[in-house]
């Protein structure tokens, strides 16, 4: 589990990450989505202890990265696949990480198999690797210590379509095994395939978060009540569409005022009533991206 609380990073007067809070839960893939330069990488670096936050904190399994006894065994990190010593072989890179974590020598061969690097490829220097091979090596380093938490920054970069599919399956199965997986991307479609939960960031601020189902559904109202079944019946009788959401709620196409009136008439006590904040996640994301894109704008 990763819990991020009011994380803020300022560089002089520029605020790169502004009061970011979210939780990445065990057993789920949390997609960290935002255009380039939105603050994803800075946030991830703060989570794993490579950058000091200006304020706020990020905890992994309840403790700061700095206080984890053997961080490699608890959090697998891949922030930039290019950030490897070009003069070392892939196998040597893994061996150093393995020794730091205190794992048996056999573990290197296991992760090489896992990420699909051959023995011959592992014995070549990282400087000769393609970006896709570096991603696989970086993922091998992250998986080496069988950590409960994975933090991956744009892991699909440089992979071919088959590689992207493979990466997706791997992360899915890792989360299904009970791990917390946080992965970032600047591509909505790439991340919506694999993520269970989404955290969307733009200009350093969180602009939306929730389960993927909630966020990707069309506009409407999310409502929770003590007796959801009775409320659902009442809404259907009043002519609105009703669908269950994750977390025992209902999603309906009626607006909040009408849903409230229906509930009052049916005598159902509401526990939550709000507009579905997924109102066009894609449009919102496009807007975010356009505002930071420089193409076509005269300098």
């Amino acid at each position: 589990m990763i819990s991020v609380k009011s994380l803020t990073k300022k560089y002089g007067s520029y605020t790169a990450v502004d009061d970011v809070s979210f939780v990445a839960a065990p057993g789920r893939v949390t997609g960290f989505l935002g255009p380039n330069g939105a603050g994803k990488s800075t946030t991830m670096r703060m989570i794993v202890g490579l950058t000091r936050p200006t304020s706020g904190s990020a905890r992994i399994a309840g403790s700061l990265a700095l206080n984890l006894p053997n961080p490699g065994r608890q959090v697998g990190v891949l922030l930039d696949a290019s950030a490897q010593h070009a003069g070392r072989t892939g196998r040597e890179t893994l061996t150093l990480a393995r020794q730091t974590m205190g794992l048996p020598a056999s573990r290197v061969g296991e992760v090489l198999d896992l990420v699909g690097l051959t023995a011959a490829e592992a014995d070549r220097r990282v400087g000769a690797y393609s970006l896709g091979m570096r991603q696989r090596l970086g993922l091998a380093v992250a998986l080496l210590g069988e950590p409960e938490v994975l933090v991956l920054d744009e892991p699909a970069n440089g992979l071919d379509p088959a590689g992207i599919r493979w990466m997706r399956d791997l992360l899915r199965s890792y989360a299904d095994g009970g791990a917390t997986v946080l992965l970032s991307s600047h591509l909505l479609h790439e991340i919506e395939i694999v993520a269970d939960d989404l955290v969307v960031i733009g200009d350093g601020r969180i602009v939306a978060q929730g389960t993927k189902t909630e966020l990707l559904q069309d506009a409407g109202t999310v409502v929770r009540a003590a007796d959801c079944d009775r409320l659902a019946d009442a809404l259907r009788d009043a002519g609105y569409s009703v669908a269950p959401t994750a977390g025992d709620g209902l999603r309906t196409d009626g607006d909040a005022a009408l849903v409230g009136a229906v509930a009052l008439r049916a005598g159902v006590a509401l526990t939550e009533l709000r507009a579905a904040d997924g109102a066009g996640l894609e449009e919102m994301f496009l807007e975010l991206t356009e505002s930071t894109q420089r193409e076509g704008v005269p300098a």
Partner: peptide, 29 residues
């Protein structure tokens, strides 16, 4: 290959009990 390997992919449950990294190991690395 991938499917077979992924079957075994489970995060270690003992991670909470891991021993700290000793300094002599870091010097060796």
């Amino acid at each position: 290959m991938t499917a077979v390997v992924i079957e075994k992919l489970r995060p270690s449950r003992t991670a909470a009990a891991v021993a700290p990294v000793p300094l002599n190991r870091l010097i060796h690395v």
